[in-house]
Design a protein around this nucleic acid. Structure first.
Length: 172
DNA sequence: GTAAGGATTGGC
DNA sequence: CCAATCCTTACT
């Protein structure tokens, strides 16, 4: 199937995040083996105002990639042991990203990066140019049922943002 | 330089 | 319930 292009990612994260559900994350491993995984759970992180978004701290070495045009990969380490996989969205200078929290077979942001062998070396990689990680359309209709809930693990982000229904789950 | 804490997970 | 484990950020 066809790889998602820049136009898909260069939109507001609240449009891109739910739209990623049902699409396929494609990984080409170092030995050349290719596997595809249906995306089942994501979260949206939206700009400097969103206190749960890393970019609320401003433009730093870590958040730099989020200020780029959509379609780049943002990876960071959490709790000293788990890599989190994100896709940058929106236009240049608008820091947004979608956290991939679950894919078919591997439920959990830390589990899926471990299974797919994703680490810091993917930071800043382009989803349209990469030969080892990208996203494709599925063959079935894009009609999917979606559940929304508050985001996980961001209780520190204040009343307004911790209650936003910016976690999107594929309802099977 | 130093300290605090995190978009998580698994084990007790 | 709590430790693991290390990078990023802020600065008593």
């Amino acid at each position: 199937m066809q790889r998602l292009q820049y136009e898909f990612f260069v939109r507001d994260v609240l449009e891109v995040a739910p739209d990623l559900l049902g699409k396929y994350l494609v990984r080409r491993f170092p030995d050349g083996y290719i596997n595809k995984y249906k995306i089942t759970e994501v979260e949206a992180y939206r700009g400097q105002q969103d206190l749960a978004c890393h970019a609320s701290k401003g433009r730093t070495a870590r958040t730099e990639i989020m200020y780029h045009n959509g379609g780049q990969i943002y990876v960071y380490l959490i709790y000293g042991m788990y890599w989190m996989l994100n896709f940058v969205t929106s236009k240049e200078n608008i820091p947004q990203a979608v956290l991939i929290r679950g894919i078919e077979t591997y439920d959990g942001p830390g589990k899926l990066t471990k299974a797919l062998k994703i680490d810091k070396s993917f930071y800043g990689e382009d989803l349209m140019a990469s030969n080892r990680l990208w996203v494709e359309y599925g063959k079935e209709s894009s009609q999917v049922n979606i559940l929304t809930t508050p985001r996980i693990g961001i209780d520190y982000s204040g009343e307004i943002y911790k209650n936003k229904l910016w976690r999107f789950i594929l309802d099977e």
